[in-house]
Amino acid sequence: MNRRQRYEARQRRRSGLIATASTLIVLAAIYLLIPLAPGWERVKASFFNWDVFARTFPTLLEAFLLDIAIFLWSAPIIAVLGLLIALCRAVQSPALFPLRIFGALYVDIFRGIPVVLVIYLVGFGVPGLGLPRPWNSPYIWGTVALVLTYSPYVAEILRSGIESIHQSQRAAAISLGLSERDTMRYVILPQAIRRVVPANMNIFIALQKDVALLSFIGPVEILRQAGIFKSLLANFTPYVAAAVIFLAITIPATRYADYLMARERNARG
């Protein structure tokens, strides 16, 4: 090793030791000090009861499958609708101006209303107009509500992605004789979509959590099931168990989004 490498190795060892020591101190403090809080035993029994956790976990996991299912069929629809709205807002030709207005209004309205309100209005309101079963299912209209509230975010992210592609790309494509549509489809969109994948991942992680709001209009998914257990067992641990299950999905997804962002940054740097 040369002189610089030796120095850097020494520095690394030092900072490694300091980091480990300070982490251990913090962990020890947490471990020792928190139980000293007056309400700790009660909180532990109420929120971190291992017995209740073990008993409720399997049922909660099963209920979570419903959340995952709802996510899996909502996400593609949201992605497609988001793209369509983004394209509506990107049209230039005057004949298609109503599309631009529609796109802008749609985004403004549905980004502005809380998801839960839309779920009630659409989930109860639309079937209440007299639809026959199975067309009035809360699964269908709850999904519609999620699509209505989440597609604007995807649309705006895509729109900013499209606008971030330098004009010169379009100039080159147009100069080759490509149509506006082909330019968008083969040159702009592939680059734009790739560029905003990390931002979109954030939206979809949020979606996975908001799926739980469908519990308001009937489906017994994990949030509702945890609530039932809470009432049955007079204990909040089922909610902690549900949180753990959510994190098991969202944390890996977040890390993956971070990885994609880092990769994107390095590629363009």
């Binding site: 009937g218 017994v220 039932i228």
Partner: peptide, 21 residues
């Protein structure tokens, strides 16, 4: 078939009106 569950009486009534239950 599995029941659908709600937060309050009003929502159960609403779901009945909507023909969902």
């Amino acid at each position: 078939s599995d029941p659908l569950l709600y937060d309050d009486t009003a929502n159960v009534a609403e779901a009945m009106k909507a023909g969902q239950i």
